[in-house]
Amino acid sequence: MESFKILEIRQSVFASNDEEAAKLRAELKEKGVFLLNLMSSPGSGKTTTLTRTIEALKDEMKIGVMEADIDSDVDARTISAAGAKAIQLHTGGMCHLDAGMTRQGLEGLGTGDVELAILENVGNLVCPAEFDTGAVKNAMILSVPEGHDKPLKYPLMFQVCDVVLVNKMDVLPYFNFDLEKCTEYVKMRNPKAQVIPICAATGEGMDAWYGWLRREVRAWRGEETKKENGHE
């Protein structure tokens, strides 16, 4: 009796997903839609960071948000109240989204009037990192109470992220969190990743995050090139 070849199945699934993700990214490029995949563990302040971001940028660009969760519509209601187009995605118990599921979400959201689409992925540091969603960039939030050693414990998450937001800097004096060590560990996993300390609750450091996001969206949409050529 043959045993199941789990590794081969996983490789097949990942290969198929990577192809779908690349196709989705190409389609988004044609439409001028920037898709950001935002990941974190539960309680890191992801929704608070997102609402602050929407409030700061909604007059500059059209924003749409896909809230992924196993159940409930709490986050989608919060995001909608902040002034962004929002849709809630229920994953049916799955702890991640892949490219196919993200495509379904984008179709439900409707991207005809969206310049920045944000996927708030399911809250955990393992599964979401394993699947390319088709996003242009990956961002993750690590909160001070979680500890500065998380890049050592969850290497893949930090390997796939383009930017790491270290949130809840206001409680730094009360936790044994070493920002310098954390940055060092992130760079060990991904030398190109940018680390931005923030406090979404107070607004500390958020301008640096907004600046990073603005630049990435403009570059993806070709707006920097237009400005350089003398166009608005």
Rank of each mutant, 00 (worst) to 15 (best):
L165G: 00
L179M: 13
Y185A: 06
G211C: 00
K181N: 14
V171H: 06
G211V: 00
D207P: 00
G203Q: 10
P197G: 13
N176V: 03
I196E: 10
A200C: 03
Q194W: 01
T183V: 09
E184C: 10
V186S: 11
L165T: 00
T202E: 05
V195R: 06
I196N: 09
C199W: 03
A201F: 13
D178N: 09
E180K: 15
F177W: 01
L172P: 07
C182G: 09
L179D: 11
E184W: 04
C199V: 02
M206L: 10
E204N: 12
Q194H: 03
T183L: 07
E204V: 03
P173M: 08
Y210T: 01
V166K: 02
F177A: 04
E184N: 12
Y185R: 13
V195C: 09
V195F: 04
V171Q: 06
T202W: 03
L165W: 07
M188T: 14
K181G: 09
D178P: 04
A208C: 10
Y185L: 06
N167I: 05
D207A: 13
E204W: 09
W209M: 11
N167S: 05
D207Q: 14
N167T: 06
E184Y: 13
L165F: 10
F177C: 02
D170V: 00
G205I: 09
E184I: 05
T183S: 15
T183H: 07
A201R: 15
Y174N: 12
P191A: 07
V166T: 03
A208L: 15
C182P: 07
K192E: 12
K187T: 00
T202P: 10
P197Y: 09
P173A: 08
R189P: 00
M169G: 10
V195P: 01
V171Y: 01
Q194E: 15
M169T: 09
M206C: 04
L165P: 00
C182Q: 08
V166E: 01
E184D: 14
N190Q: 11
W209P: 05
Y174Q: 14
M188W: 10
Q194K: 15
D207L: 06
M206E: 04
F175I: 01
T183D: 13
Q194I: 11
Y210W: 01
G205Q: 05
K192W: 01
C182L: 09
P197E: 11
A201S: 14
K181M: 13
M169C: 08
V186Q: 12
A193Q: 03
E180V: 14
V171A: 04
K192V: 00
R189V: 01
E204Y: 14
V195T: 08
P173L: 08
F177D: 07
F177H: 07
L179F: 14
I196G: 10
A201N: 13
T202F: 06
P197M: 06
E180G: 02
V166R: 01
A200Y: 02
E204I: 01
M188R: 15
R189H: 04
R189W: 05
G205N: 11
C199P: 08
D178L: 02
D170A: 01
I196Q: 08
C182E: 12
Y174A: 14
M169H: 07
G211N: 12
Y174L: 12
E180Q: 13
L172S: 09
D178S: 07
W209K: 02
Y210M: 06
A208Q: 15
C182W: 08
L165H: 01
